Amino acid sequence: MIVVVGIGADGMDGLAPASRRELAGATVICGSQRQLDLLDESVTAVRRPWPTPMLPALRTLLDGVEGDVHVVASGDPLLHGVGGSLIRIYGADQVAVLPHVSSVTLACSRVGWAVQDTEIISLVTDQVYAAVRKGGQAVVMSRDGSTPATLARLLTDTGRADSQITVLEQLGGPAERRRSATAKEWAARPPADVDDLNVIAVRYLPDERRFGVLPDDQFAHDGQITKQSMRAVTLAALAPRPGELLWDVGAGSGSIAIEWCRSGSGCRAIAFERNEQRRKRIETNAQSFGVNVLVRSGAPDVFDVEPPPDVVFLGGGISQQGLMAACWDRLRPGGRLVANAVTVESEAVLTQWYSREGGELRRFQHYRAEPVGGFTGWRPAMPVTQWSVTKA
């Protein structure tokens, strides 16, 4: 059995009696050196600091050990912590967790926020742009003392300079400290003495959150963008599910990939685009929304990425020789493919694949009201043919 004990910056003084008893009776305790140093002389077990990298050590934790192995972890080990990793490896019946008060709960108590109204974002392993939002509030778990300044600069660069940030260090311990500023102020004069053990409470301003499919002007683009109305029906056909990976082939501005990532928990995307300027634009768009889009060069030359996609969207290049076949070959069984065509040549390719693989073939025509002299008339957009299919 593996017993994971959460411990705070207040060390042994903050532990519940059950946690104290577990540590007092332990024979082997693993953890980071910082957490092991919080244990006092009442704990006589052998102390094993985590090596780098840590994951291989987790998989061999029980090797050559008789009895239980104990692990000390920061705060609540099931909140972006080692507890969840151990349960995934060994199963819930082999891992017991004794949680401490989490840093998120402590942070919310310090700034007066309800936990259920607060997003939790971890930058321990993720890139800093994952903590960019268009509004709302979040507790951001930092990687180290440089994270607050890096996030403040990114918020300033992406139009969130007025966001209010509160950096909370050594929460719950005798050296606890709290400092607040706007993102712009923190970025201009970042303190040099921020403790590595910190979290950031962020209220994102201005609040420009929008749900549903976004207007076209929310994206930087050069005209190569799936327009809002077609984006809505395309997202409906793609049918995102939690944790799925999308390949957006011929991505243009990356609007489909970004909308995909915004649509559900854990949704990820890879955007394939030949044009270098557009690739840079996709990266800028993705960072402005804080979503996980990996940008690659032209398809199908770089289709060697793993894992294979759950869903593929083709918004451009459909008539390119071999592209559709390459996408189909890489799509996993049970995966979904959606392709939009506006040219006769691309439409012919979709018709051929529809005849061979089935699915649904639809055509969409949209009209927009525009002035005609002193009156109003309907101006048609280019019709779009869409093929959607599930791979057997």
Score class of each variant (00 low, 15 high):
R20P: 01
R21I: 11
E22N: 05
E22Y: 00
E22V: 15
V28Q: 09
I29W: 01
I29T: 02
I29C: 02
G31H: 00
S32N: 08
S32H: 00
Q35S: 09
L38N: 03
L39E: 02
L39W: 00
E41S: 15
E41C: 02
V43L: 02
T44D: 07
A45D: 04
V46T: 15
R47T: 09
R48L: 15
P49E: 09
P49D: 12
W50F: 10
P51M: 08
T52I: 14
T52M: 14
T52K: 13
L55G: 01
L58F: 15
R59W: 06
R59L: 11
L61G: 00
L62R: 12
L62I: 07
L62M: 13
D63S: 11
G64T: 01
G67E: 04
G67M: 05
G67N: 04
V69F: 02
V69C: 04
H70G: 10
H70C: 14
V72H: 01
V72Y: 00
V72C: 08
V72K: 02
V72T: 05
G75A: 10
D76R: 09
D76M: 05
D76A: 11
P77A: 06
P77M: 04
L78R: 05
G81N: 02
V82K: 00
G83F: 01
G84T: 10
S85C: 12
I89W: 01
I89E: 08
Y90D: 10
Y90F: 14
Y90P: 11
G91E: 12
A92H: 08
A92G: 06
D93S: 15
D93M: 13
Q94A: 15
L98A: 05
P99N: 07
H100L: 01
H100R: 09
H100Y: 13
V101Y: 03
V101G: 03
S103T: 10
T105E: 15
T105I: 14
L106T: 03
L106D: 04
A107R: 05
C108Q: 05
S109A: 14
S109F: 07
R110I: 14
R110S: 06
G112W: 10
W113K: 09
A114Q: 14
A114I: 14
V115A: 15
Q116L: 15
T118H: 10
I120F: 11
I120H: 13
S122Q: 09
T125Q: 13
Q127N: 10
Q127G: 08
Q127V: 06
Q127L: 12
Y129P: 11
Y129F: 15
A130D: 09
A130C: 13
A131L: 07
G136R: 06
G136N: 09
Q137W: 11
Q137P: 11
A138T: 12
A138F: 10
M141K: 02
D144Y: 06
D144K: 11
S146A: 14
S146F: 05
P148T: 03
A149T: 06
T150L: 15
A152C: 01
A152S: 03
R153W: 01
L154C: 08
L155V: 04
T156L: 03
D157F: 08
D157I: 00
G159C: 07
G159W: 01
R160G: 02
D162W: 05
D162H: 09
S163G: 10
S163T: 04
